[in-house]
Amino acid sequence: MNALELDGLGKRYGSKWALRDCTLEVPAGTVTALVGPNGAGKTTLLQLAVGLTRPSAGSVGVLGLSPQRDARELLPRVGFVAQEHPLHRGFTIAEMLRLGRELNPRWDDALARERIERLELARGQRVGKLSGGQQAQVALTLALAKRPELLLLDEPVASLDPLARREFLTMLMEAVSEGGITVVLSSHILADLERVCDHLVILSHAQTQLAGPIDDVVASHRVLTAPRTDPATVARVHQVIRESHTERQTTLLVRANGHVYDACWEIHPVDLEEIVLAYLGYAPAPLLREAVAG
């Protein structure tokens, strides 16, 4: 079953499309990275999935249900941590947990208390006085103690120092290892995503550029180098994502359709970061290029 299904999903603010014609599937049980430049539509996508906003076009299916029509049934099963991880600043940690208990039927109070203890946070402390990392952890605790089947995180570690980031991801991965949860998180920090995620979605220019398991993505992309030449022969068989030429040399980043048997090219493996960057600079179709330019 797919935890998340987007079909031609679009959201428009005024005349500007924040997300357009987005179609993808997130299989259940995966940890999916949502990558893209600012303004690419990552936040919009996550907000549409949790029902904080309504689609302008297309549809979104969450655990087989509609966030708009089936909100009452769906909300207890979906957890969400927004980018600024808003918390009621005047509340103490104990009161935040009580809020979770009051507003969520599936609340696991033991889990929440155990995590707060592990974070070595005092329950009587005001949330507003915590550091950014601690607030993020509290927000995550709130989302996890709800026992969701799908957890959506919008740039949860963007403002955290490396140690806080590591602790956050550790807590997240421990929750995943307990099973029964699908995670979608958007982030800029590719190194983190590579350790933690097994699926990748690249969003750019409000559209999906690439979606699939990370291992497949890394295995199927190659950098090809050769003395300056026309990439046409390669382009017939494989998808050229990025090409660059100097006077003497041509470099291509391709999505290979099988092995590259053309002997004149030197083949190099390529890491995830290079792949992602290539796609973010990628204009997928002449149509889009015109639209962006004009």
Partner: peptide
């Protein structure tokens, strides 16, 4: 103003 309504709206109660 502080957007905490979004936190409340992503718990399990409806708007």
């Amino acid at each position: 103003e502080q957007r905490t309504h979004r936190l409340d709206w992503t718990q399990s109660i409806t708007r």
